[in-house]
Design a protein around this nucleic acid. Structure first.
Lengths: 148, 148
DNA sequence: TCAACTGTAACCACGACGACTACAAATGGA
DNA sequence: TCCATTTGTAGTCGTCGTGGTTACAGTTGA
């Protein structure tokens, strides 16, 4: 589930938005990104890894290397980012291995189904927004409420 | 919020369903509930604490004491249970304290708004189901999908 | 050739979670 | 009245996820 004690998604959104704001073809180093997000450069690289593999960003090694977007900001939905970083987690959090009683089995099944349904709903909500929306400051309480 | 590495919600649903299945006015001890859910009796009591304060269950101390539902199973929505146990947590997980740059502020604001929107959506999904539904085994993939 | 980056692995500190122990307080039954 | 049973709660502990930090190999522009 959304076992979000972790801040990867938040860091990713922060960094992507920053990259989206870099107009010319300039690349930005992990250190610069890390400073802005208030985290460690290594952490930034660890977060951006999956996004690079998915083709959302590009990285360049060597002197004057760094990171840049590989798509237009409006092409990167927050749902995609979430799925790439947290897709495997459970939102609700299950329990125990194999309850022996009938009730236990039923509960287990119900929770599994619910977990999947909730995860879908969560991604669906995030799918409504893109990095462009974040950059433009469009995500306000009213706007987020709107499309309910 | 939905930072569910924890299993409180799952344990709560399990225990409530169990209590709902006890037909006569019999009370069930923490130990019995714990055994069924595969967790510790103390953990069960800690999970049920907030639910008791909200009036969903009653507890009786002393010999032959234990727990019982305080409402009909159909009156206990999973959304309520979630809110009582995880209501304060973040689903998305924020980061850093106060980014100094303008972009950082905007991202922070957007994430906060999104977090709230997602939390609402999550509870809304769970609100569709009650302990009765779990007990009756009604929560299947098709059923959960249905009301989308 | 060299300084500046990325890519990773390794280690550490911190915090959340839940098991477990312990003990006070309540309470039903003998 | 006494005792066994059960809740209520505090405290300790082991485990695990998370992210900071260091270290170092590989890449690359100047």
């Amino acid at each position: 589930m959304a076992r979000s004690t972790n801040t990867r998604f938040a860091v990713a959104v922060h960094v992507l938005t920053l990259l989206a704001g870099v107009n010319d073809g300039r690349v930005v180093s992990s250190e610069e990104l890390a400073d802005s997000a208030g985290v460690n450069p290594v952490h930034v690289r660890r977060v951006l890894g999956p996004l690079r593999e998915a083709g959302l960003v590009r990285s360049h090694a060597g002197a004057r290397g760094g990171w840049e977007l590989a798509c237009r900001p409006e092409g990167i939905s927050l749902g995609t980012v979430w799925r790439l970083l947290q897709g495997d987690d459970h939102v609700l959090g299950l329990h125990g291995p194999n309850p022996s009683c009938v009730t236990g089995e039923g509960v287990q099944r119900a929770l599994t189904v619910l977990d999947a349904a909730i995860a879908d709903a969560l991604v669906a909500q995030l799918e409504r927004f893109s990095v462009r929306d974040v950059l433009d400051g469009k995500i306000t309480a009213q706007f987020a409420q709107a499309a309910r």
